[in-house]
Design a protein around this nucleic acid. Structure first.
Lengths: 401, 401
DNA sequence: CTGAAAGCGCTTACAG
DNA sequence: CTGAAAGCGCTTACAG
């Protein structure tokens, strides 16, 4: 008998394995048996827990003090690790705390001057743009980095900082004292709200952001390699390319502007032609890239470039789609090089050659410096640029002779 | 002269456009000129702001009361929209509040019984798994849905709820009073911590989760279509497929178990063969899918199935890679059908036919019911299943004769 | 309609 | 080493 058939003999919702045991032995369908056993076992355990009848009342520091036979002051000292508490007292109090699963309410702590140990993460951008899989990785990396430093993350999506209500929402989160610092991703250059909050003394972490006014110690930035464009041109040049097109991003982002400038520097240094017909301004999502490439390529089919530099990987994927529609093989007819190093590029056909940036490092650099600033460390570097690294995959080919 | 050359005449970091103006007119390289002008204009505006010399002191409700010539009680009444304040007084107070950009500290509000207006979002899973682009969309959707209901989101990544320190981290967030409710994504069935927190009276929202003990009003779930598998089999059957393989997910997730059962129900209903060699247990990420498919297919090359049902889209992409390696054309030799409806499937080659689930709807359903529960609405549905919809793209072909 | 006062749960200088 | 007390910023019953 096929063991999997067992499933069918039972009610649809009957088969539930507990997580921890199930993980061990899910080799094949013998799991079915395991599931049955585990289910029984767990059911009992679960009921036991319920029956233990823990009161689950909410105790405060007063209760703990009474139970431990000390004062609230002492309880507080133990919790905050003061060293003027004898070991014996500490143990006595800790025991009561542990037994009652006591956790001090942050509301009280905050009010008496504590910090929230929370960092605000603001993802700025119209939702359609913010909610795409490439950029939502931001959240993961940030949370990861913050957690490692012992901070929680309060995340928000802000469609448009220019909008008064949106700006107010952000301002409120700061002013209400919900966060110790704020991180911003996707803000256009020179945003007044950023300036305002900085002047208010808030600790600000800014990803891909340029501010032209003077540095203040509470404003930290991390930015992309401003020479990424030249690196791309150098590489294509070394492969024999002499007719290179550029698809730009959105110049409100400093990274896009840097890349644009850098591409041009590279082209000029190598004495390569800069034709308007081989320059397109796009955006930062793949639809923008597809549209820009479609327009550019179809208007110069008689004089095609041999390579295209895309502002970022998303744009490069857009270029892929445009080339597919136009019947231009990549890298046969046209080589494409991206920017970012997103993992999707590993799986695209062909795999995308790109200038990879270590996003995780960028975020942890920013978080680390923000936390260092909060914790009054000295000499925290304020502006960091993350170098990008050429990652050769399959989308650029060497030109013959 | 090429306008873009302008860039090169200036310092690398000179060219910065302000966001709002730049957005309007980034048609082509005339933007360069705009940038220069904007930069000048903005610099002035920015300096003006700095000079306005707003003191940015931190006022409290006492200060506001004094400035408005009323008592703190009245200030509080105005802020909280009590209706026993005459219009005139309200206006007087609001004016002072507005002028001073006063926002009440949450610490005080919380201590006097207010709610945090914050929902905890716990993404459970080992980081490698949690930090992939398909699942990080979760965050976006949740934050979006919560924001719409006026709640903030405190997000955490929890590698492993079984780990004591991890579980404690979660417990602490609840117990410290940082959040009003918690949402969990990626939890194995019947997790004791979930049970504990539920019994403590916390409002819990659970995504893709099954609990076998009785329902309590503070535990809400949203789950995938338990009949998704049958829908896939029905579809393949209608295309003429009679030799169908299944690659399962991880049975600790109720969705994977439901799908498995449902595939089998479908196969049996249509009287199709269930061979162990055509059944593989995988996982939920593409690497799992690739490995499982590789193993399964290479061990039955003499008797291949004509179609494969993949537990989800990530697994399906893994199957793609396996087929590519084995030289099996999709859908020529093998049809593949996924589960999820992720946008990546639109761009894969061939585009992935799948059973699409409206994730956004799932999340907003969960958030809405959690918030309704927090706000003491009555008759809030506790368990919701989201139907999946067949989305035909290019990865399944009709078999001849 | 409105103010004085109590109280929420903590921490920390102060006094002993 | 440790407790009594003040104070953090708010809300809300209570009294007028």
């Amino acid at each position: 008998m096929q063991p999997c058939l067992l499933f069918l003999l039972l009610n649809k919702h009957e088969f539930i394995a507990t997580g921890r045991e199930c993980g061990k032995a899910r080799k094949d369908f013998t799991i079915v048996m395991t599931c049955i056993i585990m289910r029984k076992k767990f059911a009992r355990r679960s009921r036991l827990m319920n029956r233990r009848g823990i009161p689950f009342e909410k105790l405060n520091s007063n209760d703990i003090a009474r139970l431990a036979g000390v004062s609230r002051s002492t309880v507080s000292r133990v919790i905050n690790g003061y060293d003027n508490v004898p070991e014996e007292t500490r143990e006595k109090v800790m025991k009561v705390i542990r037994e009652n699963q006591y956790y001090p309410m942050i509301s009280g702590r905050l009010l008496s001057g504590g910090s929230t140990k929370t960092i605000g993460l603001f993802r700025v951008g119209r939702p359609g743009l913010a909610i795409d899989s490439l950029s939502s990785n931001y959240f993961m990396h940030m949370i990861d980095a913050a957690t490692r430093r012992g901070y929680l993350v309060l995340s928000s999506i802000i469609p448009n900082l220019t909008d008064k209500a949106n700006a107010n929402h952000v301002r409120k989160i700061f002013m209400e004292g919900r966060i110790d610092a704020g991180l911003f991703v996707g803000v256009d250059n020179n945003e007044p709200l950023i300036d305002e909050l900085t002047q208010r003394g808030m600790v600000m972490g800014l990803f891909d952001y340029y501010h032209e006014y003077e540095d203040t110690p509470n404003r930290l930035t991390v930015n992309f390699d401003p020479d990424a464009g030249e690196k791309a041109i150098d590489y294509l040049y070394s492969l024999g390319h002499r007719r290179i097109a550029v698809i730009d991003g959105n110049f409100c982002r400093i990274s896009c502007l840097h890349r644009h400038e850098s591409y041009l520097r590279g082209l000029i240094r190598h004495n390569l032609p800069i034709h308007n017909k081989w320059m397109a301004s796009g955006g930062i999502v793949s639809e923008d890239g597809e549209k820009a490439a479609m327009q550019m390529l179809s208007s110069c089919m008689d004089d095609l470039p041999t390579a295209i530099c895309a502002n970022n990987d998303s744009v490069a994927f857009g270029v892929y789609r445009a080339c597919r529609k136009l019947g231009l093989d990549i890298p046969g007819r046209i080589s494409v090089i991206g920017n970012d190093g997103h993992e999707n590029g590993l799986y695209s056909q062909p795999a995308l050659t790109t200038l990879a940036t270590d996003f995780r490092k960028m975020f942890s650099s920013l978080i680390d410096r923000v936390v260092d600033t909060l914790e009054k460390k000295e000499e925290v570097p304020q502006n960091v640029f993350m170098p990008s690294v050429l990652t050769e995959r399959g989308s650029c080919r060497r030109l013959e002779g």
